[in-house]
Computed example of a mutant assay.
Amino acid sequence: MFVNGSGRPQGTHPARYAIEQAVAGVPNLLSETRVQKFLHTEATIKHSQEAVASQLGSVLPGLLRQRGFVIVQLPVVGRDEAGCPSVRVLLSDRPWADGEIYADHAGHVVWTTVPARVLLQDVAAVAAALLAVHDITRRSH
């Protein structure tokens, strides 16, 4: 197996590798050995699928963040008047005018009424809108 400069096996998607490494690093994920209180003997406890899922859900976002990945919920992509994929973005300092991010028919991403300066609290919404439009256009081609 060839490894690139990041330590990731050649041909492995970076996000997949980060998830694999994060999950592999969770201690006692499937089972654990405990010393029973009154008997002072060791017992192996196997975790249910629900317990494993709960444990992964609680630690995976933080572990991925340490590896440079952030989990983002993508907004719903609609269609504008021209039939282009479009996302409306609510901006804190402009409650009277939503921003809009859409993909035009020429393959460009366009944003309208989204100012060049965006409040830090709105950056995730703008980024998620860009990613959602990007994702929907990639899936449709």
Rank of each mutant, 00 (worst) to 15 (best):
L74I: 01
S54W: 14
S140M: 10
P85M: 03
V114D: 03
P85W: 08
N28T: 03
R8Y: 08
E20M: 04
L30H: 11
Q55V: 08
A127P: 00
A24C: 08
L60A: 10
P14I: 00
V126K: 00
R88S: 13
H134D: 10
L90N: 12
V72H: 04
P61N: 10
E42K: 15
R138T: 07
A18W: 10
L91A: 02
P75Y: 01
P27I: 06
V114C: 05
A15M: 04
H13Q: 08
C84G: 03
P75I: 04
A97D: 04
D122W: 03
L90D: 14
P95F: 03
A127L: 06
S54I: 07
C84I: 05
F69W: 09
E81P: 02
F38P: 01
W111R: 05
W96C: 05
S54C: 13
A116Q: 09
D98S: 08
I45L: 10
E20N: 07
Q73S: 06
Q73L: 02
N4W: 12
D80V: 09
Q55K: 15
W96K: 07
Q36I: 12
N4Y: 09
C84S: 12
Q36P: 01
I71S: 12
W96D: 10
P14W: 06
S31P: 02
V77P: 00
G78R: 11
S92I: 02
V3E: 03
P9N: 01
K37Q: 12
G7M: 04
G83C: 06
R34H: 11
A51E: 15
A129I: 04
Q55T: 14
L39Y: 12
E50I: 09
V35F: 06
L90A: 15
Q36K: 14
G62C: 03
R139F: 11
L30F: 13
H134V: 08
A43V: 15
I71N: 03
E42F: 15
V52N: 07
S140N: 06
R65T: 14
S54R: 15
N4R: 08
S92L: 12
E20C: 03
F2T: 12
R65P: 14
A128R: 01
L60T: 04
E32Q: 11
A82E: 12
A127G: 03
R8E: 07
G68Q: 07
R88K: 11
V133P: 05
N28S: 10
L119G: 06
A97Q: 14
V126Q: 00
L29Q: 08
H105A: 14
V35T: 15
L120W: 15
T12Y: 13
A125L: 01
E20K: 03
H13D: 15
V77E: 00
R34E: 13
L63K: 09
A116K: 11
T33S: 13
V72A: 06
V23D: 09
P14G: 04
G57D: 06
E42V: 10
V87S: 00
G107R: 08
A129F: 02
V23R: 13
G5V: 12
G5L: 10
D122Q: 02
L90G: 10
F69V: 00
V23T: 12
F69C: 02
A82T: 07
R94L: 09
L39A: 15
D98N: 05
V23A: 13
V126H: 01
G99Q: 01
L29P: 01
S92Y: 07
I101S: 05
S48A: 08
S6I: 01
K46D: 14
G68P: 08
V72N: 02
R16E: 15
V118E: 03
V77W: 02
